[in-house]
Design a protein around this nucleic acid. Structure first.
Lengths: 204, 204
DNA sequence: CGTTATATTGAATGGATTCAAGGCCAGTGG
DNA sequence: CCACTGGCCTTGAATCCATTCAATATAACG
């Protein structure tokens, strides 16, 4: 296993792979945060998700990568050639099961995203985003109410289908309702998690 | 295989399963069209996709169904108990591979959806929707420019994150630009496929 | 043929976007 | 050490366009 494994590290905003390129390797993020995105010909961007340590990239695709992967923070990752990955999967069904599970989880979160993008109002989107971050922090064993948001407002906007101004205004609104505190743009303290949940659309 | 298989048929708008219910069976649609949706407590609905003959439902979930499945047209399907499905997968790795592939395809189309929902303008969304329908018709061996849209405007609106009025106006706009014809609300003739593609956002 | 559900169209409203300005930091060079 | 610069974020004002509200038209169905 180790023989075919290779390591890499990226600086912020460095591109790991661009959508459309032939899929040669599968990656596993070991440190840092990355973003996955798709671009429209005219430059509009949709971020489909963020990657955290333990997440994989390049699993679900076929011949070519369907998304661009870029570093948000300095990032470390290891990679395997696709071919050998396939061979490994044949040899170790457990591995295949695990990748299957990861794919299903990705599908589930993509569908949550669809609901957010299609049916939530801007403040609701931002509140939901914070709750997602909080949930992730929880499974990572980090404090659930002291969030580090390494991505820029532009990234958040492109993830939620909004403009940076609207994202900023939504943060301000949540702050002025005392649901969150914003010591600085990249740090959020969730004051009232339950109320934030209600704003996020989990209300009657 | 046949021993554990059972058949069912649904009338329009009949619910097959509701989100949150324990996942007992996996379904395969053999005839008709269905819609998959999620509901917000206040009644807002997001349709995450439509099912056509050959599509499966209930594959990617874990303990409970994550989505509601309802019939759009009269529908026929067959179903397997989850347990036996799992057993079958162990016995026939080919089957598992196939389901894995289906899940990956579902993920890929969910991500297309994310782009549509987050970054496309209303007319672009409707144009994209028509192109998706056309693509599906193509793989089903149906004419690619004579579309049958069995779902209501409400369904389309809930799929695209719009209101029915906006959907209707977008159809009218496409019609008045001579990109499509609308003999009746459920039948679309695509006049200029290329131009429709450009409207959908594939332009420079 | 009449009734209900569904779709289209019109006018107004509202709220996100756009356009523009200002603030805040971190890094750089004087 | 301080002014300067550029990137990022916030805020304000004006605009635009999807939504809302309302009415009409059309289709589906008994």
């Amino acid at each position: 296993m180790e023989a075919i494994l290779s390591n890499a590290s990226l600086e912020p905003n460095q591109t790991l792979v661009s959508e459309g390129l032939p899929r040669m390797r599968v990656f596993s993020l070991t440190g840092g945060v990355m973003r996955l995105s798709n671009l429209l010909p005219d430059g509009r961007r949709q971020i489909t998700g963020f990657l955290y340590p333990g997440d994989y990239f390049g699993l679900a695709d076929d011949q070519t990568y369907s998304q661009t992967a870029e570093a948000v923070t300095p990032a470390q990752l290891c990679s395997f050639p696709v071919k050998q990955m396939d061979a490994l999967m044949e040899r170790f069904p457990k591995l295949k099961d695990r990748l299957f599970k990861l794919t299903r989880e990705a599908l589930s979160s993509a569908r949550e995203s669809q609901m957010m993008l299609g049916r939530l109002a801007p403040v609701e989107k931002v509140a939901s985003f914070l709750l997602l971050c909080s949930r992730r922090a929880e499974v990572a064993g980090e404090p659930i109410d002291l969030l580090d948001l390494p991505m820029t407002r532009t990234d958040i906007a492109d993830y939620l289908g909004l403009t940076i101004e609207t994202v900023s205004r939504s943060f301000t609104k949540l702050k002025s309702q005392n649901l969150i505190q914003l010591p600085d743009p990249h740090h959020v303290k969730i004051v009232d998690l339950r109320a934030l949940g209600e704003v996020a659309g989990w209300r009657a």
